[in-house]
Design a protein around this nucleic acid. Sequence first.
DNA 1: GCCTGTCTGGGCGCTAGCGCACATAGGGCT
DNA 2: AGCCCTATGTGCGCTAGCGCCCAGACAGGC
Lengths: 237, 237
Amino acid sequence: MPITKPVPAVNRLIAGLPDTERQRFLANCEQVTLNFDEVLAKPGTPLLYVYFPTQSFISLTTTMNGATRLGVMLIGEEGMLGISLILGLNLSSLHASVLGPGQALRMETAQFCRELELSFAWRRLLKRYLYVMMGQLAQTAACNRFHLLEARLARWLLMAQDRAQSDRFHVTHEFLALILGVRRVGITKAASTLQKRKLIRYRRGDIRILDRAGLEASACSCFCSDNSLYSLIMQAS
Amino acid sequence: MPITKPVPAVNRLIAGLPDTERQRFLANCEQVTLNFDEVLAKPGTPLLYVYFPTQSFISLTTTMNGATRLGVMLIGEEGMLGISLILGLNLSSLHASVLGPGQALRMETAQFCRELELSFAWRRLLKRYLYVMMGQLAQTAACNRFHLLEARLARWLLMAQDRAQSDRFHVTHEFLALILGVRRVGITKAASTLQKRKLIRYRRGDIRILDRAGLEASACSCFCSDNSLYSLIMQAS
DNA sequence: GCCTGTCTGGGCGCTAGCGCACATAGGGCT
DNA sequence: AGCCCTATGTGCGCTAGCGCCCAGACAGGC
């Protein structure tokens, strides 16, 4: 069995459960390693498992006309994949793939539905999480419309850093272009500006955040708004 | 009491309830007239009433930094205002104002919560409606990113026509600019192209759809996707 | 060592939409 | 009638990002 990081590998949603429920839930979960670029959900198909990233993170993208894609959400240890089950629907409308490889907990969807029925705490928590997601979705929509690429890129890098729980992660310009809905060259230009300002450093897909504060200053306010909304709703008694 | 239109004034969500529940629910509703530009919800504040438009429609917009706004959703007889209550939160994250004046049914939020607790059918219906809204939100995000203004305008006009249940309604270029997140001049340009092509006609804020089929051809595919998603999810047994 | 595939950088002409400023026209009010 | 306010139309220079293409640079496999 591989040695895990010294940091306890938890998921914030699961951590939000009352002690006894959490124990029971964890006992029914399965620990898995997610590999880079692994596809966990396709639009229009049901999910087999729900996932709770602990040290990995997942990217959700919309698909238009089957071709064009656009990143709409990033899921790390603060969230889960499969939230639509709280609405009683096992149907993904988005594409989900692994962006940050690593550990996650998972559970079969049928089993998870049973857990939901049993646990008021789970339902309450996940309804709140869904509310936050909707808020962030609306925020992202506006962000894509109004903010300049450099600011959006900075925002995204910060979000990724939080979810990777590390100041380095792997993502190429090509991939960023797909997620932010721009050309690859656009990313190259924006990223190299950030690099010249010593905020980040990258080399063949390995990105490293050098100056988080500076990056926050370059990012649009959406990053802040998202975080405020999350803590406002999720920690509310 | 004013004479209503010959068309039966119903709301599709309410119509989706089983007969006995619908009767009871309607008995507890209040019929109101919504006035143009009336504000029904502000971000960060609780709702007093939930609204079910029957012949009116409501526009939802995000607010960024308090200033810039962007339309994200349109609510007519196919939907409701106050869906976040299904998540157990009485908190609007969006701005809601009346765009198409007319009749609507409303209920106090506290009362509505009680109805939700009592009715499995309501919960099921509204969870599905929320799922559809999320899908449409993601679609709109991508639409705003990729599609040209003229197509987005055409899409919006079609959505408004459906919700107004009429081929004419009132909305100025200025307002459209706000909702679509562009300059007023941009709307003037796009709208006059549509007018030259005899798809629409407008004069001082009074818009009339002349050629729906033609407009559909000019609109982006998002209009179709939205409708498909709605009927797929809402009519499913 | 070489070769191939992936990743990053840069140039060039183009367009949608921006910001700003001004012009015209209809409707309602006095 | 005269006036003002709102709604629409137009012109001009500017920029972010597009599409396309090619160049260099590094890594891994043979």
